[in-house]
């Protein structure tokens, strides 16, 4: 009995231990690199780029808006991948990484929404427009909230991991569906003038539309956000692993006593 339990626990801890050690080694590098990139990129963008002839100085918001929006979507993709790994391979670290990433995704989505709204106020004349992109992000935000709420609501960690993983899979399909539905819905309402303007700064035509002066600091900010995301997720995953370990130890203590 004790031997199997020991073997089991060793196997259980083998991966998380290694994960902890590796990320402890990597984390300082990621913190440093992301801070450097973000500070340099934002300072460069904020102080040393000219105003756009049409948007004036609001163009500077791009350095926060675009990277956070990009990472908000990528964060969901990362959670999707982690959920799949958990469902197929049952690696606990994977499920915990998905859990750790969700609040990061919420904050990035919030940053994208808030900066979008603040930018939209002088540009469109209103804080909120039911523009397809904004609406899709609102829906993404709801998905994140539901995901985190489900994690918090369920006590048994494995059940929670399973359920949130399935929710993540189903949610991804519906998120893509919503994206197209919202596109369709708004074009049914009015012409896409505002869509074009948003596409000019957030879409794939960034390179053409945004000239090199804006492009380099923007790239730096994007790299900074990516690194920040990695650092945060690694760090938070370590926290989750430790929290889980505490839970397991306390449970064993109670079982022994």
């Amino acid at each position: 009995m004790t031997i199997t339990a020991k073997a089991n626990s060793l196997w259980e801890y083998a991966n998380p231990r290694k994960f902890l050690a590796t990320s402890e080694r990597l984390l300082p590098f990621f913190w440093l690199a992301s801070t450097t990139c973000l500070v340099v990129g934002l300072v460069w963008g904020f102080f040393f780029t000219p105003d756009d002839y049409k948007q004036g100085s609001t163009v500077k918001i791009i350095y926060l808006h675009v990277p956070s929006a990009l990472m908000a979507i990528n964060c969901w993709l990362m959670m999707l991948a982690a959920s799949l790994i958990w469902l197929v391979r049952r690696h606990h670290v994977s499920a915990l990484a998905a859990r750790a990433a969700a609040p990061v995704g919420i904050v990035f989505t919030l940053v994208a929404l808030v900066t979008g709204a603040i930018w939209g106020q002088p540009m469109w004349g209103s804080w909120w427009a039911w523009d397809p992109r904004l609406t899709s992000f609102l829906i993404l935000f709801l998905f994140y909230l539901g995901y985190v709420a489900l994690w918090e609501a369920i006590e048994d960690p494995d059940t929670a991991a399973d359920l949130t993983s399935v929710l993540c899979l189903v949610g991804s399909v519906f998120a893509i569906l919503s994206r197209y539905a919202v596109n369709f819905w708004n074009q049914g309402l009015h012409q896409g003038a505002s869509v074009m303007r948003v596409a000019a700064v957030t879409g794939s035509d960034t390179e053409e539309k945004v000239s090199n002066i804006y492009f380099f600091p923007l790239m730096l900010c994007i790299v900074g956000f990516v690194l920040l995301f990695i650092a945060l997720v690694l760090y938070r995953t370590c926290t989750e692993i430790r929290a889980r370990r505490i839970k397991a130890l306390l449970a064993r203590e109670r079982a022994n006593a």
Binding site: G56, K60, I61, V111, T115, I118, Q121, P122, L228
Partner: peptide, 19 residues
């Protein structure tokens, strides 16, 4: 920042506070 001073500063402020 011209007439958009408040806009830009509040966007940066809120984002940085959140992060």
């Amino acid at each position: 920042l011209g007439k958009y001073t408040e806009t830009v500063l509040s966007a940066y402020g809120i984002s940085i506070v959140l992060l």
